[in-house]
Design a protein around this nucleic acid. Sequence first.
DNA 1: CTGAAAGCGCTTACAG
DNA 2: CTGAAAGCGCTTACAG
Lengths: 339, 339
Amino acid sequence: MSGNIYSVASQAGVSISTVSRALRGDPRIRQSTRKRVEEAAAELHYVPQAAAQRLAGTPIQALGIVLPHIEGTYYAELAVGFEMRASEFQTSVLLLLANPKSDQRASVRRLVGQVDGVAFMAMSAATDELISEIALRMPVVTVARTQLDGVPAIFAESVASADELTTHLIETGRRNPVFIGQVDPGSDISARYEGFSAALRRASMDVPDNINVAMDEDTGRSLAQKFVSRGLKYDALVCGNDEIAVALVHELQELGVRVPEQVSVVGWDDIRVSRYLRPGLTTVCQPVAQLGALAAEHLHRLLAGESVDDRVVLPTTIVHRQSCGCTTEESITTQEGES
Amino acid sequence: MSGNIYSVASQAGVSISTVSRALRGDPRIRQSTRKRVEEAAAELHYVPQAAAQRLAGTPIQALGIVLPHIEGTYYAELAVGFEMRASEFQTSVLLLLANPKSDQRASVRRLVGQVDGVAFMAMSAATDELISEIALRMPVVTVARTQLDGVPAIFAESVASADELTTHLIETGRRNPVFIGQVDPGSDISARYEGFSAALRRASMDVPDNINVAMDEDTGRSLAQKFVSRGLKYDALVCGNDEIAVALVHELQELGVRVPEQVSVVGWDDIRVSRYLRPGLTTVCQPVAQLGALAAEHLHRLLAGESVDDRVVLPTTIVHRQSCGCTTEESITTQEGES
DNA sequence: CTGAAAGCGCTTACAG
DNA sequence: CTGAAAGCGCTTACAG
C-alpha cells in the first residue's frame, strides 16, 4: 500500500542496508545520514513490514492467547494482564477466542503460524491433544486447566479456598450445602468441588453430587425458581462462579427467600456486582490479571531460553461479605498447601 | 524451532512447490501425492510460517485493534465483537492496549507492521495525528471517537438518547439535574453532555457545567460523600457511565439518601450491576459487540477494495428501571436524528 | 561509515 | 500432475 525500504533508500539517496541500519539505530551510521533516512521514512510513512523483518531474522516477538469465547470480566482481565506484561517486552499479542462453531484446530494453527509462543487459558480453550501438538513446535503455557506433560501450567489456588469457604459455612451451622457448577475434569471448577467435598468429609458429612448446570445468570434465575417451587432443601449454595451466585441471590430474594437467613450463598471471582449486592456476596477473589501477566512472562522467558516453574499456583483471597451468613468482614488469603 | 517446507518436501520425496500446493488444496495435486505430503507435514508438526507466506504474497489477513487500557466490560465486549467477526473472515486479531506509560507511538507502529488494517476505539486510544498517519498506510476505522478526515467512523448514538433521558427526568419533575463525567471534545461522553444540554435548553432551563471527574467507582464514592457533606443541591444525576452511577447510588444510600426519591440517578452502558442494584439503574444500552463487529467488517471490506459508509451510528436503547424515579419498565430504542 | 549480495520460508507463474 | 526458479521485503555478515 505504501513505500518499502527501497523507496526510502532512493528517496534518501542511500542503499537499503543503510536505511535498515539507520532505522534500527546502528551506531555506525553517521548522524547526518541517519537524519536523511529518517526524514525520507517519515515522508513516505514508512513502517517496516514485520513479516519481512521476521523472515530476515529479527526476533519480532508475538505471543498468542487462546480463550474460550465467553463474555464476562474474568477472561477480559486475563487478556489485559497478559497484554500489559507482553507490551513491557515489546511483544505483540494475538487474541483468539476459541469459537466452538468454527474449526478450532484451523484457527489455532493459523495463530501458531504467526506467533512465537501461545497461552491456552481455561479448559475449553482447546483440547489436550491440540495443545500438546503445538507444544512440540513452540513454547506453550496453560492457565487454569489440566496440566499437560512438559507444558508449564499456571493456576489460581482453588481446592484449599473452597475447603475453607465450605468449612466456614459448616462452622456457622450449615448442614445441607450443595455445590453448583459443571465439574469438568481438570477444570478450576472441579478443583473447587474437590475442596468443597473435602470440607464435608472432614466434618463427617455426606458429600452431595454437584448440581451440574451452566454457570450463567439465566441458569441462576431458573434454578432459583426450581428451588423455590420444589421446596428448598439446601441451606447453603456454594457456586462455581459469582455470575450464577448473584443471579441466584437476586431471584431467591424476589421469590421471598431470605439470604442468608434461610440459605447462604457464596460464589467465586469477586466480580463487580458482588460488592453491590445486598447482602454483599461472599466470594473468592483470584489474582486474574496476575495470572495473565505470569503467562506472558513465562512465555517470554521460555523464548529467551530460560526455564520456568513447571507449575505455579497463585494464592486467592476469600472475601467475606454477608451472603454467607457471617458477620466478619475480613479477607483471608489462601495459598496452596494450607487447608 | 521445527520443520520448514524443505524438510516436509524431503520427507515426502517431492519438491517444495508440491508441498505448498498440496497443503493449500491445489486441485492439480494428485490424491496420493497430497496424502503423502499431509502425512509428512503432520509427522513434522509443520505449520507454515505466516511471515513467509505473507511475504510471498498470500493474503494472510490480520487486523489490529487499539483500545485504551481500561478494565471493565465495555472494551472487552468491543474486542469480543471484533474478534468474532474477524474470525469469520479467517482473520487474526492483534490486540493493543494503549498504555499511557509506554511510548504509544512505538507500540502502534509495531502493530502496524503486523496487520493489514487497524481499528482505533475510543478517544484515548491514540492521537488524531497518529491515526491520520496510519490511515495513509492502510485501512483504518475509528469507533466512538472524533471522526477524522477520510477515516470511516462508527458510533453508538449518544446525543438523542441523552436528550431523551434528560427530558424524561424533567418530565417527571426534576429541576436541578447535573451531568457527571469528563467531557473531552470528540468523545462519546461529550456527545452525551450535548444531548443533556439540548434537553435542558428546550425546557428553558439553565445548563449547568458538567462535574468534570473520572468516571470510576472510587470517584463515585467520594463524590457521593462530598454531595452529602455539602448538602445535595441536585435532584438528578446524569452519569457518563454506569460505573460511577452505580457507585454513587450505593454510597448515597449508605449515607441515608433515598434514590430516586431524593435524587434520581441514571447511567450509561447497562453493565451487569445495573440490573441487580436496588433500585435498578436506568441506563442506556449500547450495541457494544456490534460496534466491534462492524469495525472488523468495515476493515475487511476496505481490504477487499469495497467501500464502506463514511459514518455509521448504531441505535442505542434506554433501559428504564427505577433509579430515574419513574415507574415504566419499557425500553426505548433511539436512532440518530430522532430527539 | 556504507554498499552489494546472500538468505530467511514461502507462493506462483512458467515449463515440461 | 510436478519441478526449477524468481521474487516478496527485509537483515546482516562480508568487503571496502
